[in-house]
């Protein structure tokens, strides 16, 4: 058992400039880690910075400040060539399986491409590997010759998972990867992801707005609000003993699929505030306090 976490994020910030000198503070002083064979879920509402955080960890965006360490190596400052050997250790699955597959190439060639780019396999070994990947995600190997439009949304997401697994990554970032799927298909894809984690020791960074799904799949949970982590801890602690007012509000709002659990809620009105700050202004930094071992809560 290795003791260093797979991913360590330290004091990560991302600020996007917008017109008029204002700034969007998308990710503010975020520190967290993802353990090996662990699922860390990042939850929050639109604009909270959860996808930006995922993209920073993947180095699809460069941070304004702070560091990302993957498997003991700091990757946040690396150039594209130096980054390359690290890229195969982490893969991403996006929300919309219609937009993340090229309509003009067969799905088999989409799954083969990462292995061609990284020159891990070629020839018949490559074909065999593609066939094995298709089988592993619950598709027929001979479907590899077909094109994306011939598949349903759930099948396409399975193809995206096969592609993400092609290089035997250690980290898979799932950015709302099951949000667009029908509920029965969603459950099947989540089961598949859990099986793959067991089998291959994968770590997941599971970005989602859906708390009921997160409760099912994650070991630990980070709650984001306006670019900051407001609460971070083991899944049971976050769901059964939430401490931050925003976490409580979020959990209270989830409709429960049980008519006897129907809740009377006060009729609130309000928009989610914007992470946009005028020139010269910036958000106040919040400190996380350890409420119980491993369970951190932002001071309010």
């Amino acid at each position: 058992m290795e003791t260093t976490p797979l991913v360590e994020v330290d004091d990560l910030c991302k600020v996007f400039p917008v017109a008029g000198g204002a700034k969007i503070h998308a990710v503010e002083h975020v520190s967290l880690h993802v353990g090996r064979s662990e699922t860390l879920a990042v939850v929050g509402e639109s604009g909270c910075g959860k996808s930006t955080l995922a993209h920073l960890i993947m180095r699809l965006l460069d941070p304004t400040s702070g560091t990302v360490t993957l498997d003991g190596a700091e990757i946040s400052g690396l150039g594209s060539r130096a980054m390359r050997p690290h890229r195969r250790k982490m893969q991403i699955i996006f929300q919309d399986p219609f937009a993340s597959l090229d309509p003009r190439r067969s799905v088999g060639s989409a799954v083969a491409e990462p292995m061609k780019v990284h020159k891990t396999l070629s020839g018949s070994a490559l074909d065999d590997r593609v066939a094995a990947l298709f089988e592993r995600v619950g598709l027929e190997p001979d479907q590899a010759e077909q094109y994306p439009h011939q598949f349903s949304g759930g099948q396409r997401q399975r193809i995206c998972i096969a592609r993400a697994l092609a290089l035997e990554p250690e980290l898979v970032v799932a950015d709302e990867a099951v949000s667009a799927l029908d509920v029965s298909i969603q459950a099947q894809v989540i089961n598949l992801m859990m099986d793959l984690q067991q089998e291959m020791g994968l770590s997941y960074l599971f970005i989602s707005h859906d708390l009921a799904v997160v409760e099912r799949i994650s070991h630990r949970v980070a709650v984001m609000y306006l670019g900051q982590i407001v609460e971070l801890g083991p899944r049971a602690a976050i769901f059964e003993n939430p401490q931050h007012s925003y976490t409580k509000r979020l959990l209270d709002a989830v409709p429960i699929a049980d008519p006897r659990a129907r809740r009377e809620r006060p009729l609130l009105v309000g928009d989610i505030p914007s992470p946009r700050w005028a020139a010269g202004e910036s958000p106040e930094r919040v400190e996380l306090v350890e409420h119980e071992p491993g369970h951190f809560v932002a001071a309010e």
Partner: peptide, 9 residues
């Protein structure tokens, strides 16, 4: 197939 909040308590 429906995930129910609280089912993992």
């Amino acid at each position: 197939a429906v995930p129910r909040l609280g089912s993992m308590a």
